[in-house]
Structures are given as C-alpha cells and as structure tokens.
Design a protein around this nucleic acid. Structure first.
Length: 263
DNA sequence: ATGTCTATATCGTATAGA
C-alpha cells in the first residue's frame, strides 16, 4: 500500500482516440482515483475492458459527440453517489459524476466552456456554475473528505495564464466566471495546486493553436479543490506535463494531488 | 482574424465545439 493517496483529473479530449495515452499514464503514475472529462463517447463506447485490464474499476456518464465524464478507481469499483447536479432535471449534458472511492467523496466535473461570450453558451456556463456553488456549499461543510476535481474552464487569475492579452474576451477569463470561482474558494475549498505552489506559474492546458505547447503558452483551468475535512491531508500537487508532450496528445495534461492516508 | 484538433454524418469532405 503506497504511503499516499493520489487523486488526479485528466481532460482526455476523446477517450477512444486517447486510450493509449490514458493507459500509459495510468501505468506510469498509478493514481488511486482518476477523474476524466470530454470522453466524447456514448456509454456503450466506453472502453471498460481495457480499463479493467489496467487494474481500474470505473463509473462513467457518456454522451454522443461531446462532454462525458468518468471516475476510475485503482483496484476498486467506485460507488455512485450521484450522476448529475441537483437542479439539472432538464439538462442532458454529461458533465458531473459524484462517487465514493478510497474513502473520499470524489466529484468529477466538466464545467461548460462558455464561448462565445456573451451569448447563450456563456449564460449556460454561469447557470451551471451557480448550481455547482449551491451543491458545493453543502459538500464543503461535510465532516467527510470531499474533493472537487475536473476541468473548471476558469483561469482563476492573470497569474494562471501565460499572457491574458489575447484572452481578455474569452469566457475562461470573464469576471463573472472568476467571481464564481472565488465564491467557491470562499466556501472553504482549498485550491491544491495553488496552495502547494503559491509562487509558481502552473499550466494544465495548452490549446492546439499558434504553437502554444512548444512555447509553453498555457492556462491553468483544471483544478483539484479540497474541503476543510480533507485539506489538512494535502502533501503534494503537480501536473504530469509529459502526457501533453506525447504524439497526438490531448490539449490538457493530467493534474494530481497526494494526500496522507487517514490513520 | 487567425490557428488545430475530435467526432459525426457519410465514404471525401463539411460542420460543430473547444
């Protein structure tokens, strides 16, 4: 049994086209829990056999073409807590999956991108964020350890992007998006990457345009937030940049935290 | 304004979303 519990999030940008990368990453980094986003596959197309063969159990919520989230558990089948945010009855987009695994309530999420902004997609992003805020407020207060993990599609501050100039009008940097992320933190959530590395430029996403990866022109939009019951166990956090450097990589790199195991 | 991927609808190439 490794000393620490490792929980990660990875926007795979198509699980079928990215399966070799996902399997290589699981084998090398061995996260105990992995939240995946942008499966871009139906439930039937989810590659559960390969994931089982890699030593992981999984729950997933797919959708044709877009979105889709999953949570993998190393050596265990995650136990489903909920498959959608409260107040989502009419929302069919597969963006939220909450499970229990390795003693932690893991909330895997894929917040809407929201571009172009302004417009209906940005309105949807803010509504989705408001639903998350409402649900997260209750989760923060639990005495049980909880983690919010996923692609939040929010660059929290100008320190979390290589250069905000060409992104000022983008939905990821809007004051309305950032203010909601701030409110989330004000509920008591710890931004693990920033807490561990307050002075460091950290990126988790480099788009495919304009040579951004070779120039290390990235954004920090994939986040791992710990509730007060879990935050004292935080020992390390980082980004598996090597995955972004692979041939035909996702535009995101996996992000992880290491947590002390409870006594 | 641009740039590049993935998936879908359909079998070469266009469109949407990010």
């Amino acid at each position: 049994m490794p000393r620490h519990l490792k929980i990660a999030t990875f926007n795979v940008n198509g699980i079928r086209s990215r399966l070799p990368h996902l399997l290589a990453w699981l084998k090398k980094e061995m996260p105990d829990v992995a939240c995946l986003q942008e499966l871009k596959a139906t439930d039937q197309a989810f590659p559960i056999d390969e994931i089982h063969a890699a030593g992981y159990g999984a729950l997933w919520r797919g959708q044709t073409s877009w979105n889709g989230v999953a949570v993998l558990g190393r050596g265990v089948d995650p136990v489903e807590s909920r498959r959608r945010l409260p107040g989502e009855r009419a929302d069919e987009q597969a963006r939220y999956l909450e499970v229990m695994a390795h003693g932690v309530l893991v909330c895997g999420l894929y917040l809407p991108n929201g571009n172009p902004q302004p417009g209906p997609k940005f309105d949807y992003k803010l509504r989705w964020f408001d639903r998350l805020l409402k649900h997260a407020r209750a989760l923060a207060k639990l005495e049980h350890p909880v983690i919010l993990a996923g692609d939040f599609n929010v660059v929290p501050t100008d320190f979390d992007i290589y250069d905000p100039k060409s992104w000022r009008k983008d939905a990821l940097l809007q004051p309305e998006s950032r203010e909601r992320y701030e409110r989330l933190l004000a509920q008591g959530w710890t931004d693990s990457l920033r807490a561990m590395h307050p002075e460091e430029r950290i990126y988790t996403f480099w788009d495919y345009f304009r040579n951004h990866w070779p120039r290390d022109a990235g954004l920090r939009i994939d986040h791992l937030l710990l509730n007060p019951a879990l935050a004292p166990r935080l020992v390390d956090a980082g980004v598996d940049r090597w995955v972004r450097g692979l041939e035909k990589a996702s535009d995101h790199a996996p992000v992880w935290v290491k947590l002390r195991r409870p006594p």
